[in-house]
């Protein structure tokens, strides 16, 4: 019976925390305005999200101003809104185009790539994250690393211009009318390799 009580207590705590995290995720989605609920609900939901976050221990710690944004990145990473695939809506696809500028004036276009299809899916997941506001603190670092991964294959490149943007697919009716996807640039970075990094 003693063992059963311990297991029952664990069950209660475990699913209480899961409930709090799930509710925080749903309230966050509503507060972000990504649902069909009217905007009047958002303020109430934002407060409810705060409560749920406190219960699940995501906002209980004292934030240092310097690391606050990084902590927020971390706190949101496993949010149910993030984990649930394609809910409430399917996110836009994102693309990172790297313009490789060679010393002799040549220009080539490349994108970060991986070998396997499963890994390609993960790369897509990373690109989708880059577009989100909460990843803004680490965005430049990540784009730089993605650019560097391509740069290693083209060591004689002088400069890299990375352009990141959203790819908007056509709707069903638009597709029938012959429309294709459109690319909407969101930000771009210029990188040049220092001599010490070239070695």
């Amino acid at each position: 019976m003693y063992s059963k009580r311990i297991h029952a207590a664990w069950f209660g705590i475990h699913f209480f925390l899961i409930t709090a995290v799930c509710l925080a995720g749903v309230f966050w989605l509503i507060a972000q305005g990504s649902t069909i609920l009217p905007s009047a609900c958002r303020r109430v939901r934002a407060k409810a999200e705060l409560v749920a976050d406190l219960v699940s221990g995501k906002r209980g710690r004292s934030f240092e101003s310097r690391s606050e944004r990084h902590r927020n990145v971390s706190a949101r990473r496993w949010h149910p809104g993030r984990v649930q695939l394609f809910a409430p809506n399917v996110p836009s696809q994102h693309r990172l185009t790297l313009e490789l500028l060679y010393e002799d004036g040549r220009v080539e276009y490349e994108s970060p790539h991986v070998r396997g299809k499963t890994a390609a899916l993960r790369l897509e997941s990373l690109l989708d994250r880059l577009a989100e506001e909460r990843y803004e603190p680490v965005r430049e670092v990540l784009v730089k690393m993605l650019a560097f991964s391509v740069w290693r294959e083209h060591p004689d490149v002088k400069k890299v211009r990375a352009t990141f943007g959203a790819v908007n697919p056509p709707g069903m009716n638009e597709f029938e009318q012959g429309k294709t996807e459109t690319f909407q640039p969101m930000f771009s970075f210029d990188f040049s390799l220092r001599d010490d990094q070239k070695q």
Binding site: I18, V26, L29, I30, S34, T35, P80
Partner: peptide, 16 residues
């Protein structure tokens, strides 16, 4: 929990 929260989130999105 997984399906209820996933379903609820989907219901809240107009695209579904």
């Amino acid at each position: 929990f997984v399906y209820f929260i996933g379903g609820l989130a989907k219901c809240l999105g107009n695209g579904w």
